[in-house]
Amino acid sequence: MMKAIEHYLVLGRVPLMILRPNILLVVVVLGYCLGFASSASAALTLKAERQHHVNASTFNVADGLSANSLQDMEFDQFSRLWIATQDGLNMLDANQVIAFGPTHMERGLKGSYIHELLFDNKRGLWVLSNHGIERLDTVDFSVVDVSPELPQAQDFKSLIQWDNQHIAVLADNQLVLIDTKNFSVVKAPDSLGPVNNQIEINGRVLLQKENGFSWVEPKTFALTPAYPAPDKRRVISYTVDSNHFLWAVSLGGNIHRCDEHQCESVNLVTKDGQVASAGRMVAHKDQLFIVSSEGLFVVSADLSDVRVLTTDNQKNLFIKRLRFLRLFLSDNGDILIGAMDGLYHFPSSYDAISSYSNFDSMFGE
């Protein structure tokens, strides 16, 4: 009798016994989805066990720069530091600062607001500015203006070395190649589609497209998918570490670490438990350097060593406009940070000393 009653009990108008298998299926699927979402949202926490207090050396207009607002920097084959500013290009060596631009000592360059710098393998410095793209010979300081050859575009960005004979730039998200020998310009095939950003890593080019990251073959432009898109928000900085993981920072300062299949969130935490928001990042040898709101994090490739650099004499460096800070590592491991108020220098020996007194010694004096 009870079995008969149970068989005809209804939920709404549907017999309960008919619903039981479907309810079980829904519960199993829902549980699986919730478990997957839980594991996907689990964040990797990197806590700095060591904190270094370093007195950052500074260099700005008081020391001869044409402007305090730094956009990019590069060392040349003579160990001279070239600095892009919002008012001219500056060359620093052990004895002097030389400014290049339409209103400065060396007037060859037509652009004054310098966005990016890139050295080719023929002693040429490529300068991306408000004027367009120019090439400066770093020996005789002669200038070639390739801007008239470029396609009409509102936005030029992401200068990289493409291969031994070409550099590449994005013109309104379309890839354009420039021959470093005869200065001819070639557009990539339309089949490549829009490119959001591009970086060169150990002779390979990694493109950021709307649906993820792909390696590109320089001659055929064939794409090999490499990493998924980590965040729907715009990625402002990305790199690949020595273990082939992609690290990306989104516009909100969030970090993701990706393999070829999936991405995980990363939290940077100081020794006293402060969670940091991230800005620019650079992979250098077996370490990852990340500008953050709590200082400069230095993370080993195997994640076993995490430390953070803070500066006692320049406390405002890591507080504002993190995504506008430019991070550069010299060959000997010195750390250079370009900010809106000048150049900051951390020595490679930061783990052994607490201060650094003389900026000029970096240039051999």
Results as ranks from 00 to 15, higher is better:
203 G>T: 01
237 S>P: 11
275 V>N: 15
280 R>Y: 13
278 A>T: 12
310 T>E: 07
341 D>I: 01
250 S>W: 01
250 S>R: 02
235 V>L: 11
205 V>E: 08
271 K>E: 14
283 A>E: 15
245 F>C: 00
327 L>T: 11
276 A>V: 12
324 F>V: 13
263 C>F: 02
294 E>P: 03
260 E>F: 00
209 K>M: 01
219 K>M: 05
279 G>A: 09
223 L>T: 12
334 D>Q: 15
214 S>C: 10
340 M>V: 11
294 E>W: 02
297 F>C: 15
215 W>A: 06
243 N>Y: 02
224 T>Y: 05
251 L>W: 01
240 V>P: 07
284 H>G: 07
211 N>L: 09
338 G>L: 03
229 A>V: 05
333 G>N: 15
269 V>Y: 04
286 D>C: 09
286 D>M: 15
211 N>G: 08
204 R>C: 04
219 K>C: 00
336 L>Y: 11
297 F>A: 06
230 P>G: 10
234 R>K: 11
206 L>Y: 04
342 G>D: 14
202 N>F: 00
305 D>Y: 00
338 G>Y: 03
238 Y>W: 06
330 S>N: 10
251 L>D: 08
224 T>V: 13
283 A>S: 15
252 G>A: 06
301 A>I: 00
229 A>C: 07
217 E>G: 01
210 E>F: 05
318 F>R: 11
301 A>D: 14
345 H>A: 13
205 V>R: 03
229 A>K: 11
259 D>R: 04
249 V>Q: 02
297 F>W: 05
256 H>K: 11
308 V>H: 10
324 F>P: 02
215 W>P: 05
328 F>N: 14
328 F>I: 08
238 Y>V: 02
262 Q>Y: 14
241 D>G: 07
207 L>W: 10
223 L>Q: 09
251 L>E: 06
219 K>S: 10
328 F>V: 09
316 N>L: 07
273 G>Y: 08
213 F>L: 00
231 D>T: 07
204 R>I: 03
248 A>R: 00
299 V>P: 10
226 A>W: 05
231 D>N: 12
288 L>V: 13
261 H>I: 00
226 A>F: 07
254 N>V: 08
325 L>P: 09
284 H>V: 14
344 Y>I: 15
218 P>E: 02
306 V>M: 13
204 R>G: 04
312 D>T: 13
310 T>N: 14
252 G>P: 02
